[in-house]
C-alpha cells in the first residue's frame, strides 16, 4: 500500500445520499480474479449511456473533476454489499479521499485496506464544502492526514477525527497482516486455550 501523503487536489462533488456498492461497482464487473482495473467501471451505470458513451449529466464526467482525488458525497456512502471491489474501483479511478457525514461499516473498513481516507464531517460542514465546490468547480482542498486537517480556499477548513491506529497505517502504508502476525505467539496461546474450552469446535 502507498503511504498517504499530504496533498492538494481537486474535490469532486456527488450530492447523492445512500450511494450503495452496487452503484459504485455494478455486479457484472465482480467476476475478475485480479485486484486491478476496476476504475474503468466505477459508477458504470450512472457514468455511461447504454451505447457505452459518457453520460454528460453524470457529475464525475464534468471535465473539471477529471483529476480529482477527493470525493465529496452525501450520507451513508458505500451501503450494501461487502464487495471490496468498491474501494478498489474508487482507488483505481484516482480517488484517495472521501468526505461524507457517514459510511456503511464494511465499506469504511475496506477503505483503510486500500489507501483511501474516509473523512467524517458534520452535516453542516458538508453543506459548506458542497456550496464551495458548487460556487467554484475545480476548487482544490488540502488534506493533511498527519495533522488531521482539511483546508479550503474559501476558509471552510476543518479538523477531523480518525482512529490513531488507522491513521498510522495509512501514513506508513503498512500491511495489516504483518502487524497482526507480530502477535502470533498470543494467537497460538489463545488457540491452545480455545481448544481446551471449546473442544467440540476442533473435532
Amino acid at each position: 500500500m502507498e503511504p498517504y501523503k499530504k496533498h492538494e487536489s481537486i474535490a469532486a462533488l456527488m450530492n447523492r445520499s445512500n450511494v450503495d456498492t452496487d452503484q459504485i461497482i455494478p455486479k457484472q464487473f465482480l467476476k475478475k480474479v485480479e485486484r486491478s482495473g476496476f476504475g474503468a467501471h466505477l459508477f458504470h451505470d450512472w457514468r455511461f449511456n447504454d451505447d457505452g458513451s459518457d453520460n454528460p449529466d453524470f457529475e464525475l464526467n464534468k471535465p473539471v473533476f477529471k483529476d480529482a482525488k477527493i470525493l465529496v458525497v452525501g450520507d451513508n456512502f458505500g451501503c450494501g454489499s461487502s464487495r471490496e471491489h468498491a474501494p478498489w474501483a474508487i482507488a483505481d479511478y484516482g480517488f484517495n479521499t472521501i468526505i461524507s457525514t457517514s459510511y456503511a461499516d464494511i465499506f469504511y473498513n475496506n477503505c483503510f485496506k486500500n489507501g483511501i481516507l474516509p473523512i467524517v464531517v458534520s452535516a453542516e460542514q458538508l453543506d459548506k464544502l458542497m456550496a464551495e465546490i458548487n460556487a467554484n468547480e475545480g476548487v482544490k482542498f488540502v488534506v493533511d492526514l498527519e495533522n488531521k486537517q482539511v483546508t479550503t480556499p474559501a476558509g471552510n477548513g476543518f479538523s477531523f477525527e480518525i482512529d490513531p491506529f488507522r491513521q498510522g497505517n495509512l501514513l506508513s502504508g503498512l500491511d495489516d497482516i504483518g502487524l497482526t502476525l507480530i502477535h502470533e505467539d498470543k494467537i497460538t496461546a489463545y488457540e491452545q486455550q480455545h481448544k481446551q474450552t471449546y473442544p467440540w469446535l476442533w473435532v
Binding site: G80, S81, S82, H85, N109, N110, I177
Partner: peptide
Amino acid sequence: GDSHTATHGAFGALAFGIGTSEVEHVMATQ
C-alpha cells in the same frame, strides 16, 4: 466475504461480512 453473513446470527453466533483484504487476513491469522 459477504454482507449477508449476518444470517448466522439466528444461531446466536456473531456473524458478519468482511472485505477481501480481511478474508486474506483471516486465512493468514485466524
